[in-house]
């Protein structure tokens, strides 16, 4: 089983709890205006990524495992290579490795269910609650994203919901309110300030929020009853 890997970071403090080895799989089905890693979007696998088989992934992880809390699969959208991802998760879980999947939440129910059997949790991006804004931001709808957030929460595998805050483009307040309505106050929220680093021309119209706006959003979430909120 071969996968197409864009990059591997052997230690990261920002991709889940503790020190994590992060595997970035190539290819994404969204086209976010503010994408900070646009090079991971193309799905011309052979040209844009390197091939790895499952045993190579396992060997890489084992080399560093003494220093790790676990492994995070990211992308691109890692669930697009679902068969490879599933095989990696199965092999790593057999070795007792903690696994997180960082996803845009667009996977099919079948893919999600099969991955959830091995992954310890999912970190899902909620780009926008409004389907229209979601389409403007990402060129894709969000019906599956919302459904997957609920499905993962139900099976106890929703590790975190992330929102990139872009005034005028992301309806973060509405997204937070929806999560609260769905009784997901126990889920950690990560509010990420949009920053214009590494983005393409398509992000020209986007303006970063002020620190005050970030704190206002945090206060709003706290008022609704969320208690694990990170602002970065």
């Amino acid at each position: 089983m071969i996968g197409y890997v864009r990059n591997i970071i052997t230690h990261s403090a920002v991709d889940g709890p503790g020190n994590r080895l992060v595997i970035f799989l190539q290819g994404c089905n969204f086209n976010c205006r503010y994408c900070h890693n646009p090079e991971t979007i193309p799905r011309d696998w052979e040209n844009s990524a390197f091939e790895m088989d499952v045993s190579a992934v396992v060997n890489t992880v084992e080399r560093y495992i003494d220093y790790l809390s676990g492994v995070t699969f990211s992308g691109g959208e890692c669930t697009l290579q679902s068969a490879f991802l599933l095989a990696c998760c199965r092999a790593l879980k057999e070795r007792g490795v903690h696994i997180l999947i960082d996803s845009n939440g667009s996977a099919s129910e079948d893919v999600l269910t099969s991955l959830a059997a091995y992954a310890d949790g999912f970190m899902i991006d909620l780009k926008s609650f409004s389907g229209h804004l979601h389409k403007v931001l990402t060129d894709a709808g969000n019906a599956r994203v919302l459904a997957n957030i609920l499905a993962l929460a139900q099976c106890g595998k929703l590790y975190e919901v992330r929102m990139v805050v872009v005034p005028g483009f992301a309806d973060t307040r509405e997204s937070i309110a929806w999560l609260a309505d769905q009784h997901l106050l126990h889920i950690p929220l990560k509010l990420i300030k949009y920053r214009a680093h590494g983005v393409t021309d398509r992000a020209k119209a986007l303006v970063p929020p002020t620190d005050n706006e970030m704190q206002d959003l945090k206060a709003y979430a706290e008022k609704l009853g969320f208690h694990k909120i990170t602002v970065v």
């Binding site: 230690h11 403090a13 920002v14 709890p17 503790g18 020190n19 560093y64 003494d66 220093y67 809390s69």
Partner: peptide, 18 residues
């Protein structure tokens, strides 16, 4: 970034002490 994630440091300590 590490200060927000102290478990990262504990992971390093555990691995290195081992």
């Amino acid at each position: 970034t590490v200060e927000r994630n102290p478990q990262y440091v504990l992971d390093i300590i555990k691995g290195a002490f081992k």
